[in-house]
């Protein structure tokens, strides 16, 4: 196919062609592109000798395997009970105000996506969020300000 999905061939070389390689390959695509496109899925299916439906089925099951375009930095704010009790609402509000998007949306420059997620395992230091894979806990609106500014300047 097109030259720009060489990365799929690379991932397949690295992890192998068995079905057990499917998760690592899908995770690899998300790490690179922040989402898995339909084209990626067809290509992976071809390489692994699976049907596109099988690849699609697996990919769409997992919250972190995005199948719609996402920003370069995906922010996932925990909305489960402890973080909720400790001010998650204000965290979301701060991010929405700063990025001028609503939860679920991506900024027009494709830099940030804001999502909610379930318990991240930082309940003792909630509210917590992930930016891509990096966790942040003990959040306050002020801290969120500082953190996001850092990313905006990246």
């Amino acid at each position: 196919m097109t030259a720009n999905n060489n990365y799929i061939t690379e991932l397949v070389e690295r992890y192998g062609r068995g079905r057990t390689s499917l998760m690592p390959i899908l995770q690899g695509v998300v790490e690179r592109n922040n989402f898995i496109s339909d084209l990626d899925m067809t290509e992976i299916a071809r390489e692994l000798d699976l049907s596109a439906a099988q690849v699609y089925g697996t990919a769409t099951f997992y919250a972190f395997l995005d199948t719609v375009p996402r920003g370069k930095y995906v922010i996932r704010v925990c909305k489960t009970i402890t973080c909720d009790m400790h001010g998650k609402r204000r965290i979301i509000q701060t991010i929405e105000d700063m990025l001028k998007i609503k939860t679920g949306e991506t900024t027009p420059n494709k830099k940030f996506t804001l999502l909610e997620t379930n318990c991240l395992g930082w309940c003792h230091e909630g509210p917590a969020m992930l930016i891509n894979e990096k966790p942040y806990s003990g959040l306050t609106p002020e801290r969120v300000h500082d953190i996001l500014h850092e990313y905006m300047n990246l």
């Binding site: 379930n118 318990c119 395992g121 930082w122 309940c123």
Partner: peptide, 11 residues
């Protein structure tokens, strides 16, 4: 997998 809300000991 430690996904149960309120659990963070395995990490």
């Amino acid at each position: 997998d430690e996904g149960e809300p309120g659990t963070f000991k395995d990490r």
